[in-house]
Design a protein around this nucleic acid. Structure first.
Lengths: 356, 356
DNA sequence: TCTTATTTCGTGTACGTACACGAAATTTTC
DNA sequence: GAAAATTTCGTGTACGTACACGAAATAAGA
C-alpha cells in the first residue's frame, strides 16, 4: 500500500515545473520544450503516477454522445433484451458526462437502415454502437465514421470487413455447435427437426445462419447419419404454425428432438404444452421472459443465452475510455460467454439478466 | 434528457438557503431548523437531484479499509480463485478512497481462525468480507462487529444466524441438485461413484455438505434405485488415490458416472487420462486451471462454476456504498448464477473469469 | 435590558484535474 | 541591438461536493 496517491502536483514539484506544464505533457498538447517534456515523463515514471478518474471526469467539461443503431423491437422479441441493456447503460451513464441515444430501424427493410444512417449523419454523435444487419451498408458507414474520427463498436454480431474499434458478442458459429453437442451428445437420435421461424421474404444473410452452420457442422462431423427435417413457421401465425406442427408430428411420431436457432422457441413450447406432448428434448436461444417460463416448466430443456447487458456495458465502456482518455481496447474481438440454462439453474440468472 | 445536471447550488437557490445548509440536510447532520430541512427536501424532490459521485468521492477525504477474512490457499486450489478476485478488486479500488486488505487462516484450524479474528479486532477496518467456515465463531464475530458498527458481507457461503449486511454467492444445495440433473438426467445409470477428496480429520460441516445433500435429494426424488458408491481420496497423495481408483474400477467395471463435490476433479481427470479410460461421464466444480484443461480435453464433461470475481466485486460495492452513502443493498441474500461449462463453451469463459 | 448559551446558517477552502489567459523567456527579424 | 514574433511556462479559476469555522439569529438566564 502506498501511503498516498501521487498527484500532478507531486510530479510538478519533482520535475521542477508547474502543474500547467505537466498537464500539457499528459494531454500531449503543444507548447512544451523537449527537455521539459522529458523531465515530466521521468517524474511520472518514477513516482508511478495514475490519473484520478474522479477528478478528471469532474473537471472535464466535455459532454459525449453515444448513439446506438439498433433494429426496432416488438414486445417479447430478442431486440427487447438489447433495449433493456441500453436502458440500463443509460442509467449507468448518468453522472458521467455521457448520454446514450438510440436510433432504430426495421431490420427487414434496408431502406429504413439507410434512412437511419442518414439521421445519424445529420446529428453526428461522438461515438456509435451498431448491431449490424446489412453488411455492405455497414461497411460504408464504417468508412464514413472513420473519416469523421467517430469510433464504432459492434455488438450482437460483427462485420469483419468494416472499420471498427471493438466487438462484444458471442461467437455465432460456436453457439450452434454447442447447441448440437448439448442436444445430440448423449444419446444421438436418428432424426430431429429444426423449426425455422422466419419472415416471408426476409433476408437470409443474418447471424442466425452462422449459428445453423455451427449446428450442421457438428452433425456432419459426429453424426453423418442424422436426418434433419426443416419445417417453416411464422412469427405471428399461431394457427398456421399449429397446423404445420400437427402435420409434421403425425407424419413423424418418433421424433423427439427439436431445435430452433432464433429466439422464438417459446412458440414451440406453447404448442407442446397445448398438445400435451411428452418426452421432448427442445433447445432454443435467448433469455426472453416466455422462454424462461418454458424452461422453468420443463418444456424447453436447454436455453443458450448471451449476456446482453454485459456486452453493451463493455461496448459503452470501451467507447467512453476512448473518448475520455484515448484508450484503445486491449482486444478488438471480444467473444463473450454463452451460458447454458436448464430448469435447475435458470432461476439464478433472471436477476442478473435484468439489472446487472 | 435533462439539459443539465442539478447541483446542490441549484437546490440551494430554489430553497433560498445556502449550500452549507443543503449539505447538512443531505447528510442529515444536526443544526438545521425543521422548516429549512423541509424546504430543502422539497427542492431536491422537485428538481430531481442526484449526487455527483465523482465530486463526492473527490471531496470525501475519508479513507476506508475493507478487510477480507479468507482461508489461505495452496496453488491450484479453490481459494486461489477467490484471491485472484480480491486482487482484481484491489485494482478497481485504486483511485477510490478505498483499500482492500486480506487476513488469512488455515481453514482446517479453528485456532487460526480465532487468531485471525483477534488480529482483525486489533486493527479494525471500516468493513469486513468473510468467507465463513466456523459457524459459531462467525456468529460471535458478527455480534462484535455489529456492536462496533462495522458491516460484514459474506461471500462463498453464509451463516444465516449471523448479523450480516449481505451475501453474494451461489446456492450450495441447488448446485448439487443441478449436478445430479446434468449427470443423471438423460440416461440414468444403475450406479455411480462419488469420489470424496477430503482432509483426514477435517471438519465435516462445510458448504460442500449442502451440495452433497442437493445431489442426494435429487437422487431420492427421481432415481430411488440408484446406487451411489463413496470412495475417499486424499488431496496430495496421488499414489494412494490411484490405488483406490484402480481397486474400485476393477471391482465395478460397469460404472461410468463420476461426481466430486469440491474443486479437485482434476485429480480424477488425471487418473482417467493416465489409465486411458473411455466413455466416462465426469462432473466437477470450480474453474481452476487444471479443471479447465480437463474439460477442454473432453475428460470432464460438466464443470459447474460460480462467478467468483463478480461475487466479490458486488460484495465490495455493497460495502463501499454503505460506507460512502449509507446505502443498504436492495437484497440481503444474493444468489448468483451457476454456470455450466462444457467442452464447447468453456473457451469463452476463461477471459471473463480471469479479469472481468 | 443586557449578557450568555444555543441553535441556525453562510462563507471559505480543499479534493485533483482541465484549460484559458497572460507573463516571462527565447528566438527571429530588420 | 532593439523590437517583434514565437515559444515556453506559471497562475488562476472552474467542476460539484464535504466539512470546518465562525457569524448571525434566536432563546435562555440574570
Amino acid at each position: 500500500m502506498q501511503t498516498k496517491k501521487v498527484t500532478v502536483k507531486d510530479i510538478a514539484r519533482l520535475s521542477g515545473l508547474s502543474i500547467g506544464t505537466v498537464d500539457r505533457v499528459m494531454h500531449n498538447r503543444s507548447g512544451v520544450a523537449e527537455e521539459s517534456r522529458r523531465k515530466v515523463m521521468e517524474a511520472m515514471e518514477s513516482l508511478g503516477y495514475t490519473l484520478n478518474t474522479n477528478a478528471s471526469l469532474l473537471a472535464n467539461k466535455k459532454h459525449y454522445r453515444i448513439c446506438c443503431l439498433l433494429p426496432s423491437f416488438e414486445s417479447g422479441d430478442y431486440w427487447e433484451l438489447v433495449y433493456n441493456a441500453v436502458a440500463s447503460a443509460q442509467r449507468d451513464a448518468e453522472g458521467y458526462n455521457l448520454s446514450i441515444e438510440t436510433l432504430t430501424y426495421n431490420q427487414f427493410s434496408r431502406e429504413e437502415f439507410i434512412e437511419a444512417v442518414e439521421r445519424l449523419k445529420a446529428n453526428l454523435p461522438q461515438a456509435v454502437i451498431v448491431a449490424p444487419i446489412y453488411r455492405n451498408d455497414t461497411i460504408e458507414l464504417g468508412h464514413y465514421l472513420k473519416e469523421k474520427g467517430v469510433p464504432m463498436v459492434f455488438i450482437d454480431s460483427k462485420v469483419s470487413e468494416a472499420d471498427y474499434l471493438a466487438y462484444y458478442g458471442i461467437p455465432m458459429w460456436e453457439s450452434g455447435y454447442l447447441a448440437a453437442s448439448l442436444l445430440l451428445g448423449d444419446e444421438p437420435p436418428q432424426s430431429i427437426v429444426n423449426f425455422r421461424i422466419e419472415r416471408g421474404g426476409g433476408i437470409t444473410d443474418n447471424p442466425t445462419l452462422a449459428r445453423r452452420h455451427g449446428f450442421t457442422d457438428y452433425v456432419s462431423e459426429n453424426l453423418p447419419e442424422l436426418r434433419i427435417y426443416n419445417e417453416f413457421l411464422r412469427p405471428h401465425d399461431k394457427e398456421h404454425n399449429f397446423a404445420v406442427m400437427d402435420k409434421f408430428f403425425a407424419a413423424h411420431p418418433d421424433i423427439r428432438h427439436i431445435v430452433t436457432f432464433n429466439s422464438r422457441v417459446h412458440l414451440i413450447a406453447d404448442y407442446i404444452t397445448t398438445r400435451g406432448l411428452k418426452g421432448m428434448s427442445v433447445l432454443g436461444f435467448d433469455i426472453l421472459g416466455q422462454n424462461i417460463k418454458a424452461v422453468q416448466e420443463g418444456v424447453v430443456k436447454y436455453l443458450i443465452v448471451q449476456r446482453t447487458q454485459v456486452q453493451l456495458r463493455r461496448g459503452v465502456n470501451a467507447l467512453a475510455e476512448w473518448l475520455a482518455f484515448g484508450t484503445i481496447p486491449p482486444l478488438k474481438d471480444n467473444y463473450m460467454p454463452m451460458d447454458i440454462l436448464v430448469k435447475e439453474n435458470i432461476n439464478f440468472y433472471s436477476e442478473l439478466y435484468k439489472d446487472n
